[in-house]
Design a protein around this nucleic acid. Structure first.
Length: 208
DNA sequence: CTTGAGATGCCCT
DNA sequence: GGGCATCTCAAGA
């Protein structure tokens, strides 16, 4: 069942943890089938004090959506060529969001592979915030989109999550002491997680 | 396996 | 103009 607004109006760390095992679903005009993937990795960005959070630099056109009501998409472009998907959390006026960092493809895997523009093994389709947006055709046209609408939403399909690990967030070394907070969450047993610690010791297949 | 460089557009100073 | 919540490819060990 589709998550409703109430799911997103909670403390952001709870949501980041609870989104693991939920299913991100995308409905597009092209291709009649849905694209769907299980969320296996997230990061929390919480408030104007959090120096890693885009909203820490104030209320601007880009960050406006984070100050708005929960349950909407915050999609921004990074490095000029990739997009990242966040879900806005907490209450209006308090800027916070959860970055979706990795998904395990469940439906439409072939189309996702085509969207990625190359032939890839399954664990490379959605193992990163830019990768999953490319795979599911998520770009800035979906910025501010409601997650209770018909183009992009998240479902609970009753998946068991198993062991959850946390770590500092990726790529925010500039954020001073805030960079050390363990606000990244990921499934311990899942090879679709980006930069999974087990990859280095060879338990999972290579990310490349 | 690892490391390093380059791509490339937008946001904010 | 500087820097960015990234990714891919090529080269080396």
């Amino acid at each position: 069942m589709k998550l409703d607004t109430g799911f997103y109006r909670k403390p952001t760390l709870d949501i980041a943890r609870d989104l693991l095992g939920k299913v991100l679903v995308r409905s597009t005009d092209r291709g009649s089938d849905l694209l769907a993937g299980q969320i296996v990795e997230t990061e929390a960005y919480i408030g104007q004090d959090d120096r890693a959070c885009h909203a820490s630099r104030g209320r601007t056109p880009r960050t406006e959506v984070m100050f708005g009501p929960p349950g909407h998409a915050y999609v921004y472009m990074i490095y000029g060529m990739y997009c990242c998907l966040n879900v806005v959390t907490e209450s209006s006026g308090f800027p916070a969001a959860v970055l979706i960092r990795a998904i395990e493809p469940l439906e439409g895997g072939d189309e996702m592979k085509r969207n990625r523009g190359r032939d890839l093994p399954p664990h490379q389709i959605g193992s990163g915030p830019g990768k999953l947006c490319q795979a599911m055709r998520i770009d800035r046209n979906l910025n501010t989109e409601s997650l209770t609408g018909s183009r992009l939403w998240i479902e609970d399909r009753g998946y068991e999550v198993g062991e959850v690990l946390s770590s500092p967030r990726i790529g925010v070394a500039y954020a001073g002491t805030w960079s050390a907070r363990p606000w990244r969450y990921f499934r311990a047993d899942n090879p679709h997680v980006s930069r999974h610690p087990l990859n280095a010791s060879g338990t999972f297949l290579s990310q490349r």
